[in-house]
Design a protein around this nucleic acid. Structure first.
Length: 482
RNA sequence: UGGGGCGUCGCCAAGCGGUAAGGCAACGGAUUUUGAUUCCGUCAUUCGGAGGUUCGAUCCCUCCCGCCCCAG
């Protein structure tokens, strides 16, 4: 019976026994299945485990039903580890599309089970729908309604896979959790480091910046040193049932391709039409909800002008989409919140610091979107966990809610230092607007300075960025993510 | 009602006698394990309508329709 299987794998545990699960222990694994060639090919890329001295480990593999995690499981099994496949049921597409029997999640779970069967490893399905809905989908909808542009994959990794699933795996006796992410873990002097994947085109470090050091210590990424073509080749060599399965793309919980459908379902009636306003003040048209837009977006505005217009800002308070020419998208300064550090952060600014001391700023490399090479920047860390990033040369189309990920250098396999969520992006055009606004009301209001985060005699560009904000929200609040 | 001007793709707009540029928008595709951007492709057998001149008219002429400005 299945309960016996679960006890064999994990021992009794309330989280598992209460979860919806299935098991596929019937398959028989044959060591002859793996050739010596594949073994040799894998060994140089062997993942770093929490304790390399103990070669055989119990590893839970998060199996999505796709090629990558399937190959990860196969490689670990080949390496002689005690591999347990786990697939998370995160959403129900049947419910989402209101059609019975059309459940892509179900198909993926089925695929994962077939792979586990093929490999002869136990496989369990855990029902994480409720926590996924709360931790990922709800905040996804909230973020869009607040005029931001969320990255649900980051929260799914840090809050679901590397938190809930990892905790469950550890409690159940596993030594570590493995995934099919294209990300490398390298241990330096016994300290695990997160590094960009060897396949820079597939590198997923952008989506993993929120991983904590404690999580990383228990994570394993078998694909970090491989290229996608190698992974596909292994899938064929292992004769995995998913060897020819297309790569997944887009947001996993958006079955229709329109993410606004999900928002409408989670927050009925929250999407409202409003005005499209040019940065010069002209009302140019109407929109069917700010959730349909993101900063930097050009298509879909349905406004014929003499030049291309881009979404410059989303005003959630007034339900307005602010549009303008491309130059208004150039941003040079990012205010970050909830910064996570995997490397060593610079010394934070202390309050009442009278001058900028050496070491308080840090020259780093950052990415503000997943498909981009790291570019140079200067980082200032606030004492309250926020940070300010000065982008050398600026960047177009930076949206609040996106991530800014820190790298040690621009090398292909650079170390990931950490990252934060973009709370606000500012550029030259914003500073001009700020100055005009300030001049218009200087007789009525006093400037909102920021002595509390110890700016002191910071470089002028950074000082000006933190001197005043366009809205009533102070920079201190923004920098701390309030 | 007189006088003047203008009507070219959904919007803007070039062409002013030789067989319809371009921009914007839209649509399709490529790219992409977030949203975008970007790139590629498609998009007026026809120039407000009807006649006329001409080998040939969006371009010249006549009338009609519509809009704008000025004057009553």
């Amino acid at each position: 019976m299945h309960n016996a299987c679960i006890r064999t794998a994990f021992g009794p545990h309330p989280q598992v026994t209460q979860a919806f699960w299935s098991c596929s222990c019937s398959g028989h694994y044959s060591h002859a299945f793996f050739t010596s060639a594949s073994l040799q090919a894998f060994e140089p890329n062997a993942p770093a485990f929490p304790s390399p001295s103990a070669p055989r480990r119990r590893v839970v593999v998060a199996m999505s039903g796709g090629v990558d995690s399937s190959v990860a499981a196969a490689l670990l099994k080949q390496d002689g580890h005690d591999v347990i496949g786990v697939t998370l049921q995160l959403y129900d597409h049947g419910e989402a599309t209101r059609r019975k029997g059309s459940c892509c999640a179900g198909q993926d779970i089925h695929d994962a089970r077939r792979v586990a069967d093929h490999l002869g490893i136990p496989h369990y399905v855990l029902d994480y729908e409720q926590r996924f809905r709360t931790a990922v989908m709800q905040s996804f909808a909230d973020s869009y309604l607040a005029g931001e542009t969320p990255i649900p994959c980051v929260g799914c990794n840090s809050q679901i896979k590397f938190k809930e699933l990892l905790e469950t795996a550890l409690e159940l006796g596993a030594d570590c959790l493995a995934t099919g992410h294209y990300i490398a873990r390298r241990d330096l002097n016994g300290v695990p480091q997160l590094c960009r994947a060897a396949d820079t085109a597939r590198d997923q470090s952008y989506f993993l910046f929120a991983t904590t050091r404690a999580q990383l210590a228990r994570l394993c990424f078998p694909l970090g040193s491989m290229h996608k073509s190698e992974v596909r080749a292994f899938a064929v060599k292992f004769a995995l049932p998913v060897a020819d399965k297309p790569d997944s793309q887009d947001i996993c919980f958006v079955p229709t391709g329109r993410y606004t459908d999900v928002i409408e379902r989670l927050k009925p009636g929250a999407i409202e039409s409003g005005l499209i306003v040019h940065v010069d003040g002209r009302v140019l048209g109407r929109h069917e909800g700010i959730v349909n837009f993101t900063v930097g977006q050009r298509r879909g505005l349905k406004i014929a002008a003499t030049e291309p217009l881009f979404v410059v800002r989303l005003d959630a308070a007034d339900n307005r989409v602010i549009v303008g020419p491309r130059e208004h998208l150039l941003k040079t300064e990012l205010v970050l919140r909830h910064v996570n550090w995997l490397g060593d952060p610079p010394a934070p600014r202390r309050e009442a610091t009278s001058s900028l001391e050496e070491g308080q700023s840090m020259e780093i490399f950052v990415r503000i979107r997943s498909s981009q090479a790291p570019r140079s920047a200067t980082l200032l860390l606030a004492s309250d966990g926020g940070a300010l990033v000065e982008l050398h040369g600026g960047e177009y189309g930076v949206a609040a809610g996106q991530a800014c990920v820190f790298y040690e250098d621009a090398a292909d396999q650079a170390r990931v230092l950490g990252g934060g969520w973009i709370a606000q992006a500012r550029g030259t055009a914003d500073r001009e607007t700020l100055r005009e606004n300030r001049e218009n009301r200087e007789k009525r209001e006093t400037p909102c300075g920021l002595p509390s985060i110890g700016i002191g005699d910071a470089p002028s560009t950074l000082t000006s960025a933190l001197t005043c904000t366009e809205t009533s929200t102070s920079s201190r609040e923004l920098i701390s993510g309030r």
